[in-house]
Design a protein around this nucleic acid. Structure first.
Lengths: 357, 357
DNA sequence: CTGAAAGCGCTTACAG
DNA sequence: CTGAAAGCGCTTACAG
């Protein structure tokens, strides 16, 4: 809008006007404006107790007025540590990954930390070197490890060696408490067992996840605990091992349904496999739940997309992620946490019913 | 293992031995070792042409020997820009999100850039302020926007104002070519139409995604293009609008299947809704594909988990993500890209069949 | 083609 | 309780 004889814009014009608002304030600006040294501003930023109340309030007012936020990069450089949290994972289930990310983000919200995602492959020859490079290059503040990387002792050892904070998410206590968020898969699986028993089933089978996942053992253990309460136990042939995949569910279902006598209820280590068993049952001409009860684990979307929708055990993945992030960055909560939100809960839908005939 | 009269370890011991290997080399170490100034090392790092070949080689040798990698934080501080790429998204489908992340990571691999994830909510009153804060605080190198945030002009405007690089992923050219990766939903939907027509169907219906997604319109447009090739067109009542969710698929299926005459084929804007229609058909006592052909779009996992598995259109989400990341950070590829990998392709499974006799 | 000085925006010792 | 100096590991002018 300037006419042709308007003087050229000053640097100040350029910085404060045209290009989207004034330049971001720095610690020096705040110090000058508040009439203190930058070190004192730094103390306020870092919540040091050694600042007189009056000084602190004055500085905080200036900070608020200018919308000042310290530069995480500069802070990180001086601290020798970034404000980045890594999520290092190899869980193949998209819904698990997304829920976990959302939970971590819940926990980091407002803290100034950001989440950097890092898928990995435990079978890769450069697996550990990759993680080490990632953590050291970025000087990560800390990392969160969901299963199954969380179960890899080599990773925990590496992280300890290079002095990187970490939280392992797992179904059993694998490490010192300050490094763990423990799920309660056992409890959830026991609920599934009670449900199946209450429906009157006695010929019961279990499809386990792969042996390399601790959750496979926990879910089996919990299921056996639940059965034991009713005096029941799984025989050798009642247990088959899948791979937590849909296809493996089909295969295991085929094997189990070919047995004589046929089981009337099958508990699966996760929903994927339960959906596979559903497929298998259909091929065998069985109607669920009339001829066969199927129960899954996780309550991922697939549980509701199949027909009939699956009775399953819901795991609070997002909530667990949030707890992991809060623990990692040292957030203390005022209100005691509602533990019911962090425990698995049985969701009864239409794939489970009374024992046939 | 030290005996009680071993002298206390020196600082050097601590740094080089015990705590996981020697300290990371800095640009100063490399400069000293190579007998040059740090500025010259900096030139090599940044691939400046103004370094004599012999000098460069010497420096590169030292860098390789020490496994030196420049500190992204220090570099970012000096550059006034980080080496972080943001993915800002609101797509609710976990599989889409994960595939997109994997694609972006593919494109960033080896570049030194890291991926920071940032879900958002277009309906939030702080939507734009959140994005602005995120980008400015982290001094992001650039961001990738998948649908539907990619379709929000306010976001593009904001990013332009604050001078942040960005790539928008969408089904239509919404911006200058350097800011766009365009999918080919139209082409994919046309393939679906041809498939349905070839099976002999004439009473055909379409379930659209929500009007707020450009892909809804593109998929509809492409489908109509494909029908037009056979001289067919959708009538008013043949089109119903869903919300890209399973539940909306059930509702739209109910509405469509209640019509007389009933459609013999339904093309759905995505797999979720197609799975919903499958559910609806089952309730109505119809057998798919004998009584009804259903075709989806995306080829997400749900397409294979339902029965019968869905005929659908596969979109190369991961490949698109990779292209977006490469474009953002300016990677040039030697070999010309195989475009067939970036186009949608029809996947024929068991939910489509000849028109009922 | 190469380098010495100053600076990016913070924090850590060290004084007072 | 507060501050001046030095430094984190790089890059940008500016010289030569």
């Amino acid at each position: 809008m300037s006419s042709s004889n308007t003087p050229p814009s000053t640097p100040e014009d350029l910085e404060n006007g045209v290009e989207g608002g004034r330049k971001r304030a720095t610690i020096n600006d705040i110090a000058r404006l508040a009439g203190v040294s930058k070190k004192t501003v730094s103390r306020v930023i870092n919540q040091s107790p050694f600042v007189r109340d009056e000084t602190r309030e004055r500085i905080e007012a200036v900070i608020a007025e200018w919308g000042y936020a310290p530069d995480p990069q500069a802070r990180g450089l001086a601290f020798r540590r970034s404000f980045l949290i890594g999520m290092i994972y190899d869980n193949p289930n998209p819904q698990y990954v997304v829920n976990m990310q959302l939970g971590l983000l819940d926990g980091l919200r407002g803290s100034g930390f950001e989440l950097v995602v890092h898928p990995c492959d435990r079978a890769s020859p450069t697996f550990l070197a990759d993680i080490r490079g990632f953590v050291e290059r970025q000087k990560l503040y800390g990392v969160v490890l969901p299963p199954s990387v969380s179960e890899d002792e080599r990773v925990a050892k590496l992280l300890n060696e290079i002095g990187c904070e970490y939280i392992r998410i797992a179904s059993v206590e694998l490490d010192m408490p300050e490094h763990m968020i423990v799920g309660h898969d056992r409890m959830g699986a026991a609920q599934a067992a009670r449900h199946i028993v209450e429906l009157g089933h006695r010929r019961i089978a279990f499809i386990s996840g792969p042996g390399s996942f601790r959750s496979s053992h926990e879910r089996r253990g919990g299921f056996e605990d639940g059965l034991a309460e009713a005096g029941l136990k799984l025989a050798e042939g009642d247990i088959v091992q899948g791979a937590y995949t849909f296809e493996s569910g089909v295969a295991c279902g085929d094997a189990l349904l070919a047995r004589t006598p046929r089981p009337t209820a099958i508990f699966c280590g996760n929903d994927e496999m339960a959906a596979g068993v559903l497929q298998s049952a259909r091929k065998a001409g069985l109607v669920v739940p009339r001829d066969l009860t199927i129960v899954g684990f996780d309550d991922f979307q697939i549980a509701q997309a199949v027909w009939p929708p699956l009775t399953t055990v819901r795991t609070p993945t997002r909530e667990i992620g949030r707890m992991a992030a809060e623990k990692l960055i040292g957030v203390e909560r005022d209100e005691p946490r509602d533990m019911t939100k962090t425990e698995p809960s049985l969701v009864v839908r239409e794939s489970s019913g009374p024992v046939p005939g």
